[in-house]
């Protein structure tokens, strides 16, 4: 098992708490109609984004998904600018023109969330082409869900990346459902490792509810990709707590199943482990939680008080 330093344990816990509280806050803002439109929330899946991205170098790249808040926060995203973007405000990370589905920050190596399932595959794989041509030691982690496994471009890109030995780590967040359709009703091949086999790349399945398990696997495969061995597939089995989006009544899954995963909550379990292993005290954990709450409140306040974009912005940023 991966053993974090005290400082590292505190950081992992803090980031997961930031994501959880960020998502809970957005659900609150949606239900109060302060946030408009939709939002796909990452709560429950925190161990994946945090476990993987904390194992990257700051100048490595990621591409994200329609459920991208967690990736953006873990990739050193500014909470104020992210919250403002989700509310469509001028101070948002994309000036209020992207929204929840298009959070991006190229300066921090985040090539963007995407409103199209599998939309990040081409971008990430192309970034891999660029890095390979630059003979760079940087890599790309391409996040996508189980739903994207059945989209054509996923196959095109995995084939190309393996053929050209591109530095791309394909990271499948298997949360069991593509909106409402379970993997059992959508995937002819249930063992996702076989998808990688088809393109002659290695694959592993990790427990995506356990940040240390994710981290252990991520470190190994990031190293593999960074050494020029070509791409690989890491599947993290995980679960989203909220529905697909705000209006989802979750009729396609059972209360028992939800309880099963919530009992394995990545944050609670990691916090308990930190105490048990002596990495953090209960007091330290409470302090982290309180400080995260304060940061989220601050970000919310910042976002709500920020102005909408100026009307002149309608036609800017289209062409250079």
């Amino acid at each position: 098992m991966y053993k974090p330093s005290k400082q590292e344990a505190a950081k992992l816990l803090r980031q997961m708490m930031e994501i959880r509280q960020f998502e809970d806050k957005i659900m609150e803002l949606l239900s109060k109609n302060i946030a408009e439109g939709g939002s796909h929330l990452y709560a429950g899946m925190e161990a994946v984004a945090v476990g993987v991205i904390s194992s990257l170098n700051p100048d490595d790249f990621i591409s994200s998904t329609h459920r991208g808040h967690g990736h953006a926060i873990a990739k050193d995203g500014d909470l104020n600018a992210l919250m403002a973007e989700i509310l469509g405000k001028k101070t948002g990370v994309c000036k209020g023109k992207g929204g929840s589905l298009h959070l991006a920050d190229l300066n921090k190596g985040n090539l963007g969330a995407n409103g199209i399932v599998a939309g990040g595959l081409g971008i990430a794989t192309g970034a891999g082409i660029a890095l390979k041509m630059q003979k760079s030691s940087k890599i790309v982690v391409c996040f996508f869900g189980d739903g994207a496994l059945n989209n054509g471009i996923t196959h095109e890109c995995m084939n190309m990346a393996s053929l050209w030995k591109l530095p791309v780590l394909y990271l499948c967040e298997n949360n069991l459902y593509a909106m409402s359709v379970s993997i059992n009703r959508a995937c002819s091949v249930k063992d996702f490792k076989k998808r990688a086999e088809a393109y002659d790349m290695p694959a592993e399945i990790a427990d995506g509810m356990d940040v240390l398990a994710v981290k252990e696997a991520a470190i190994r495969w990031i190293d593999y990709v960074r050494k020029g061995n070509g791409p690989c597939l890491l599947v993290c089995n995980t679960y989203r707590y909220y529905g697909h989006s705000r209006s989802d009544p979750r009729v396609y899954r059972t209360k028992e199943e939800e309880k099963f995963y919530k009992d394995r909550d990545p944050i609670l379990n990691f916090a308990q482990k930190c105490v048990k292993e002596g990495w953090l005290t209960e007091k330290e954990i409470k302090d982290i939680e309180a400080s995260v709450t304060e940061a989220i409140e601050k970000a919310t306040d910042f976002a709500i008080k920020s102005p909408l974009p100026d009307p002149e912005e309608l036609y800017t940023d289209l062409y250079v």
Binding site: G122, I123, G128, I153
Partner: peptide, 13 residues
């Protein structure tokens, strides 16, 4: 799709 998509990714870099 991958030709255009990866073209985009490399252009971004």
């Amino acid at each position: 799709a991958a030709i255009v998509g990866t073209g985009l990714g490399s252009a971004l870099l």
